[in-house]
Computed example of a mutant assay.
Amino acid sequence: MEMNDLLHAAVDSNASDILLAIDAAPMFRIDGELKKTALEPLDPTTISDLCDQVLNQQQKEILDRQKDVDFAITIPRLGRFRFNIHVQRGTYAAAIRRFSNEICSLSSLDLPPVVEELTRLKTGLILVTGQTGSGKSTTLAAMVEAINQRDAKHIITLEDPIEYQFQHGRSLIEQREIGEDCPGFASGLKHVLRQDPDVILIGELRDLDTIRVALQAAETGHLVLSSLHVSSAAGVVDRLVEVFPPEEQSQVRSHLAETLRGVITQKLLPAADSKGRVAALEIMLMNRAVQTSIRESTSHLIPGIISTSRRMGMQTMEQALKEQLLNGKVDPDIIDEHLQELKGEAPKEYSQGLLA
């Protein structure tokens, strides 16, 4: 078995992810659903050979030492793939994410107009959040590309690893890979501030030092875009604040209230026509009520503020789900499922009643 053949099959199947583990056939994630391939189950020798086909010597050394390695490769005419190769039960396993060669535009993703408006800001922090596989990287890349095609800016990205590869448009874009071009997010970000950027993309806010420098960058005249694994806009505030020591949290809330410009929380849902997936977005923008809630540690009030501020472009996840249902883009059963997640319990007849 050749890794190239496996990647070709994934592209032909329009799979977003490939999962490899011993004693199981390779599995593809297609439109969010995990599906077995018709291939033979992998044995330790086969999976080791597959991984060796894409690992370079440095990556092999990291894998031997840390039992886990992340990297990305581009295959001409096929696309870019992010690999996580790790050890489980004493043998290799792999999770492979596929990225398109072409960066989607905001309009092709059918995102609310306010997302494009956020890319016109000159300073502040914008976060795209959601669970793994919710399309955060795709949205962030589309936002960066919107700036790149429209404005003459200096854009610097810090990624682990580099996912989408940008071409210079009206902007000049530099992409720095953690481990290859700089040792870590926090140290790379400190140096980026001396490189005359207008826009900074941080792949993920992972730790205290990175969050601290990101807030500093947003305060000192830069537009900072990043992602966070949080499932609600209100949860973002608590997550960012709780990373800091208790004695700093009051000051951090004040900084957040001044620098945070918007939070986009995403869910990807199967499309009603079974062709691809549809994004539902919760959107929080900064207004006086949200700022006060952040400063006064009353983030439980934020969902109510969002739901009553639709004129500004805000919307809760519940409102976004209802809108996708009314537009006929997602089946009622899927909406019910996600409403149950949000509310704890939702009547099965809810969405059918909404459509009646």
Rank of each mutant, 00 (worst) to 15 (best):
I264S: 00
E180K: 15
G179C: 09
L78M: 10
V115Y: 10
V241Y: 00
G353N: 15
S134M: 04
P246E: 13
V263I: 03
S231T: 13
G188Q: 08
L325W: 02
I155W: 11
L118V: 02
Y164V: 08
L39S: 09
A93F: 10
L158N: 08
R206Y: 08
E163F: 10
Q131M: 14
V199E: 04
Q266W: 01
Q167V: 12
E242I: 08
L140F: 05
E163M: 09
S309G: 12
F244C: 04
S100L: 14
L225H: 04
Q66W: 13
D110F: 13
A214Q: 06
S226P: 05
G179I: 05
V69R: 04
T45D: 15
D331I: 00
N327T: 04
N4T: 12
I264Y: 01
I156P: 03
R65F: 07
L6Q: 12
E204L: 08
E177A: 08
D151I: 05
A10E: 07
T157Y: 14
D110H: 15
L354N: 07
V224I: 07
T46N: 14
Q165N: 11
L321Y: 03
L342N: 05
A9Q: 14
T119I: 04
V224C: 08
S351N: 11
H338M: 03
I200G: 10
L111V: 06
E345N: 15
R77T: 14
D196W: 05
L354W: 10
G276V: 00
F83R: 02
V278R: 00
E296C: 07
V69Y: 05
L34H: 00
S134I: 04
Q195P: 06
P197E: 06
L78C: 03
Q175K: 13
Q216L: 09
I18C: 04
Q165D: 09
E323M: 10
I305V: 12
S297I: 06
V128S: 03
V128R: 03
S250H: 15
E33P: 00
T308S: 15
D49G: 11
D160A: 10
A320H: 05
D43K: 14
D64Y: 08
Q88L: 10
L39W: 13
L125W: 05
R212I: 01
V192Y: 09
Q165L: 15
Q175D: 14
R253I: 02
L321K: 03
D12I: 10
I62G: 02
I200D: 13
E159A: 09
E219M: 09
D17P: 07
I62H: 07
E2Q: 13
F28N: 02
A233D: 04
H255G: 06
E174S: 14
V115W: 13
S274T: 00
V241F: 01
L268V: 00
Q175Y: 11
N4G: 11
V290D: 01
L301I: 13
D331V: 01
I178Y: 07
D12V: 11
A217K: 03
P332V: 01
Q57W: 14
E282L: 01
T298H: 12
K343H: 15
L201Q: 03
L215C: 05
L34Y: 00
Q340Y: 13
K348G: 12
N14V: 04
T292M: 13
L19P: 03
L39R: 10
S351G: 11
Q59I: 04
M317D: 01
A15D: 01
A10S: 11
A10H: 02
A234C: 11
M314T: 00
G276Q: 00
